[in-house]
Nucleic acid binder design. Sequence first.
DNA 1: GCTATAAATGAAAGCGCTTACATTAATACT
DNA 2: AGTATTAATGTAAGCGCTTTCATTTATAGC
Lengths: 333, 333
Amino acid sequence: MATIYEVSKLAGVSLATVSRVMNNNTPVKESTRRKVLDAMAQLDYRPNSIAQSLASNRSNSIGVLVSELHGPFYGAMLTGIEAEFRAAGKHVIITAGHSDLATEQDGIDFLQSRNCDALILHVEAVSDDYLLQLAAGDTPFVLLNRHIPAIADRCISLNNELGGYLATRHLLQQGHRQIAYIAGPMWKTDARDRYHGHQRALAEYQLTADPALFFEGDFRETGGSKGLESLLQSGKTFSALVCANDEMASGAITAARELGLNIPQQLSVMGYDNVNFAYYTYPKLSTIDYPISAMGQMAARWVLREVYQQESNEVQQLFEPVLISRDSVLAAT
Amino acid sequence: MATIYEVSKLAGVSLATVSRVMNNNTPVKESTRRKVLDAMAQLDYRPNSIAQSLASNRSNSIGVLVSELHGPFYGAMLTGIEAEFRAAGKHVIITAGHSDLATEQDGIDFLQSRNCDALILHVEAVSDDYLLQLAAGDTPFVLLNRHIPAIADRCISLNNELGGYLATRHLLQQGHRQIAYIAGPMWKTDARDRYHGHQRALAEYQLTADPALFFEGDFRETGGSKGLESLLQSGKTFSALVCANDEMASGAITAARELGLNIPQQLSVMGYDNVNFAYYTYPKLSTIDYPISAMGQMAARWVLREVYQQESNEVQQLFEPVLISRDSVLAAT
DNA sequence: GCTATAAATGAAAGCGCTTACATTAATACT
DNA sequence: AGTATTAATGTAAGCGCTTTCATTTATAGC
């Protein structure tokens, strides 16, 4: 594989001139440029981006750390990020932290060691302190789906509390008063915030959350189906169910059907996130829209503006959830 | 940020000795090793993996090129790959080719330029010739979901034709004789192979595929719903529908319901892939199991064995599809 | 104690590129 | 034609590590 040495020899110019042609950042006479480009083509020269990165302390790539690689939520997030960077001629290096402290730290170390120009971090386990320390370092980063006031300028987030509020308020407005709740893992901030919103909506109707109508799920379908079974065994009746994400809602609906419950006649169900298949469940799922793909796109634009000085990129940092009313909620009788 | 120079100075040893301690590949006296490790800890030394890669022509990472970052199929594939490497202490660099020729080539170039020790390629647009040329180069790679006889030892694939055959044969065994088909994009090999299997099953029952009962979809939900609408408008009656993947099956089922068709009483539906939510559709989707997560895991093991000499890894290269019979297929009346 | 051998460690030269500063060539003005 | 200025290009020294070959130190045997 040809190197810059061979190109410079064949073109009859210096290494610096070849480098100038590659990077196109300082003037090179047109005839000289032509000689260099011809030599590159003839040798099928491919710049070694490892050497470029060492020499320049740049890598022209962005590290992305997400919690998982599967699931519609992460798929949409990654797609939003990657599409924006692909249009800008950048590459992303993706790794997963699995909501585990050591794995998240290892992932960040890995991305930093690859000399990423910036990081987009969807992390849940590392502490605010850890991220503040990271912010004091040299690697620019933007947080997705997390808000830390001390570094608010680097956060792209959604008002999860408001989303939790809107979900439950919708059921209350439809006349439901006995509302069960299947939460995400409550050590996760967004799971807690959604539940707080649920509680706030209930309080507006002089209601309090009944612990017997609460189940802590895992954001997976099985969490939803197990959650519904557990709630039904509580002996308490409820006419509506809020699930803290669409995957658990989908699981709950399937379990309900197996138990002979008619959705939404006998049980109204709300989801959260508005992932792609929410439209294809039966009945079509009422949910809270969480524009994660757009948020991923904004994180990418933040990087393009802050790190690559592409000033035309406007960045929205705080997103609002929106009620999506479909067929899985019916007025209480 | 401390470099190997500062570590060697603080420890009072040479650069080579520090490097030997880092790589632990040649003998270092225990007392010397202790001095170096203490100096590293005191300086909070982090090796620069860019410099390591340039000097050693290794990167300790594997490049993964997939068609998409979203969707349950790709999520499962990536998860299978990443989990195996994470257990082995390796990192993956993931990029997407979007089934586009230029983007796939660019992605391969990107991963090669990052000095990946090996590549795992799920590519659809680049030609067999291109891959044969790549195989002649220096970068080891394994193909996922593609079989090229000349490099069969580097291919992990599924017998898609058999899967297409099993899907349609199941319906034929249930008495269906008028079977519609919603294909994937027919320029894709797996889409064609699945259809060929469909045709082979029909031929065993002295039937031929009716062009009016064929719709070329896009492997997306919308492809399924549009496909069903189109097929119904053909005027031809059919009692069963094969969709070339679960996402289109899910879309078709939703469209059927909107059109007042009862699944499976009035229309049996088969999917393909057995992605996670196939269990949660209503009715639960009969499908063909495509163990893409296990295949991803095998691709990872291939790399561990071939590139990192971890001989304990056994690698299965050819996978067989399996019929998963759930509730969306009923015997013909 | 001397000699031969083995172990441990150091010196130095890259790996492939970037870039600051120096040099040369080209151009403009008098 | 000479001089000053500007443009273009070359030289050389890293960037942070690895690794080959040389040197030094340690050990064993006589």
